[in-house]
């Protein structure tokens, strides 16, 4: 039996989703106020800027990059399938 191997692009998309999940779970969404110059209570400005930027990048990764990776993965799968079609044709018996 052939072992299932997830396409690398799909793995990358899931990884981006996981990074965003971790960022959200850490509460970094509250730090994106630095985008408007608003400090985060109890957090040094430099750290808040770093955390806020990381969350923004993680979000962009989920919304902008991950879907591209998923679509690209689907296109590659499609091309694999289409690439096999001529092989199937060759195996047909010639018409009697």
């Amino acid at each position: 039996m052939k072992r299932f191997r997830a396409p690398k692009l799909m793995v990358a998309a899931v990884a981006l989703l996981a990074v965003y999940g971790v960022s959200a779970a850490l509460g970094l969404e509250d730090w994106v106020g630095v985008l408007s110059g608003t400090p985060v209570p109890g957090v040094p400005l430099e750290l808040a800027a770093l955390g806020g930027a990381a969350h923004v990048l993680a979000w962009f990764g989920v919304v902008l990059v991950a879907p591209i990776l998923v679509i690209a993965s689907a296109l590659l799968e499609l091309s694999e399938v289409m690439g096999r079609v001529p092989d199937v044709g060759h195996r047909r018996r010639p018409a009697q």
Partner: peptide, 14 residues
């Protein structure tokens, strides 16, 4: 092939 697929996907998604 991977690069072409990503480029096409970008053209579709963005």
């Amino acid at each position: 092939r991977g690069s072409v697929a990503v480029a096409l996907a970008t053209l579709v998604w963005l």
